[in-house]
């Protein structure tokens, strides 16, 4: 019983960076941009937020720096993809490489350390105690006491993303723009601008996600900290076909596999094996998804 509580308790925060990156990626997915720079955005904001938190010893400047760093990366992505018309895939790969080099470079340049940065000056995101919920026996110990963006994400950002994409004129235009950009242009709305906005929203959400990674779950920065989370979020978007509610559900499942990994390490299973779990889970999910779509095809044929 304790084990399950512990798994679920670590699952919730573990799912947040992936969830925020996937929600951001939804906007670009609906705008028909093959955005793979989420990885770079997460890594950048994980780094810049630690820098901000270190310099000013305050978590909210850290958060501000994190979002700003991620927005800078998305500006770069938007500039190359929308203005210079480079391929999205190429640009994403190059930007991810650039970010991996740049974060390591500046880690050595600013703090003179290699590997990871831990310092008492880094202030973590504050953890929230929820008055009534914390006294409920099992649920309270799972839900209570996480860094605050977790609650904002679950209860505000996820519903908001759903409403924006499916219930607002902006969302309608965005989806139409993804369907056929020329149509949108012909009714007098600039498709380029919609695409630009979607990339920037993606940057902002990834910024919060990266900050949560370095200041919410941990209180440190390590080289290549995002460790494929951007790629996992891309896989989740493809699996969910752009539905925010599905994204939310799948992300929780991934959080659980990650939490499961962390907990299994305590019962003497080597950590390299448990670290594989989220990636294996992606493959399993892809497999199940493709089986289901095949079944549907068969039904249609029959």
């Amino acid at each position: 019983m304790n084990l399950i509580i512990e798994i679920l308790k670590s699952a919730l925060p573990a799912s947040i960076p992936i969830l925020l990156a996937a929600l951001g990626g939804l906007f670009t997915w609906h705008a028909n941009i093959f955005n793979i720079s989420m990885e770079g955005m997460l890594l950048t904001s994980a780094f810049t937020s630690v820098v901000g938190s270190y310099l000013f010893e305050s978590w909210w400047i850290g958060l501000l720096f994190g979002v700003a760093g991620s927005l800078a990366v998305s500006l770069l992505f938007a500039f190359f993809v929308l203005k210079m018309k480079t391929g999205e895939f190429i640009t994403g790969i190059a930007i991810n490489t650039f970010v991996a080099g740049a974060t390591t470079y500046y880690l050595r340049q600013l703090f003179d350390v290699k590997g990871s940065l831990m310092d008492p000056r880094i202030v973590a995101l504050p953890k929230w105690n929820i008055p009534i919920v914390k006294d409920i026996p099992v649920i309270g110990s799972i839900i209570n006491g996480h860094a605050f963006p977790l609650y904002l994400t679950f209860f505000i950002i996820v519903p908001l993303v759903y409403v924006i994409i499916y219930k607002t004129p902006f969302g309608l235009r965005l989806r139409a723009c993804g369907y056929d950009a020329k149509v949108i242009d012909s009714v007098g709305i600039k498709a380029e601008r919609l695409k630009f906005i979607s990339i920037m929203i993606c940057g902002a959400l990834c910024g919060v996600g990266g900050t949560f990674l370095s200041l919410g779950i941990m209180r440190m920065f390590t080289e290549n900290m995002s460790n494929g989370r951007g790629w996992i979020s891309l896989a989740i978007i493809i699996l969910s076909l752009g539905n925010p509610v599905k994204v939310f559900a799948i992300c929780i499942i991934f959080g659980i596999t990650e939490g499961l990994g962390l907990t299994l390490q305590q019962v003497n299973i080597p950590n390299q094996i448990t670290d594989m779990l989220p990636y294996l889970a992606v493959l399993a999910a892809l497999y199940i998804n493709s089986r289901q779509s095949k079944k549907k095809e068969l039904k249609v044929k029959n």
């Binding site: 190359f80 480079t86 391929g87 640009t91 190059a94 930007i95 991996a100 080099g101 470079y105």
Partner: peptide
């Protein structure tokens, strides 16, 4: 690590 950044910049620049 500067060279990693420089290589990425070169790639972006050539493609652009």
């Amino acid at each position: 690590e500067f060279t990693t950044m420089l290589i990425a910049i070169t790639v972006l620049s050539v493609v652009a």
